[in-house]
Amino acid sequence: MDIEALDITPYVGPWLNTTISFWCVTLIVITSAAVAAFSRHIVSAAYSLFFTLVGMAGYYILLGADFIAIAQIVIYVGGILVLLMFGVLLTNRSLEQLYEEHAGPYVVAGLAAAVFFFVVLARIIFSSSWGGREIVEVEPITTGLGEAVVSTYFLPFQIAGFTLLLCLVGAAFMVRRREP
């Protein structure tokens, strides 16, 4: 059998790959975000947030932002998620405390707010004519991003770095061991 006859790319176009990737990533992200948002067990919520964050990196790759995808994995998965895990570890005395009991009215209020916002946002998204078109040519953005950091965004970049320093020092200061 001719192996080239199995190549479906001339028939369905190169966009099929993007579409399949998009729906796979969407399946992962939506499922794990639902678990992260609504699971009663706080450890499973934190673990499924891992899949959400990695799936978001997949979206960034599909959108052509390669540097942001790597930064997402390094900072979110490697930093913030580990911080969250340590928070879970340090703030529970027993296994029973890992299960939280939902407070009834707040669950109803949260779900109502979420459904309301989603209906409003979906109406806005589908009733607007966004115009624009996707840039087909994908190229690495790291060079342009680095030049923007040291030219256009120099002051915001320094302020963000100083803010990060202050926040980390302040957080370490807040959780120091105090003498009783």
Partner: peptide, 26 residues
């Protein structure tokens, strides 16, 4: 929009402070 609504619901409905933080991340 779906992610935002999940995060909003988590912020409103969760009692655990770390759960609220997870919603903010979403």
């Amino acid at each position: 929009a779906i992610l935002f609504c999940f995060g909003l619901a988590a912020c409103a409905a969760r009692r655990n402070a770390i759960g609220i933080l997870i919603g903010i991340e979403l």
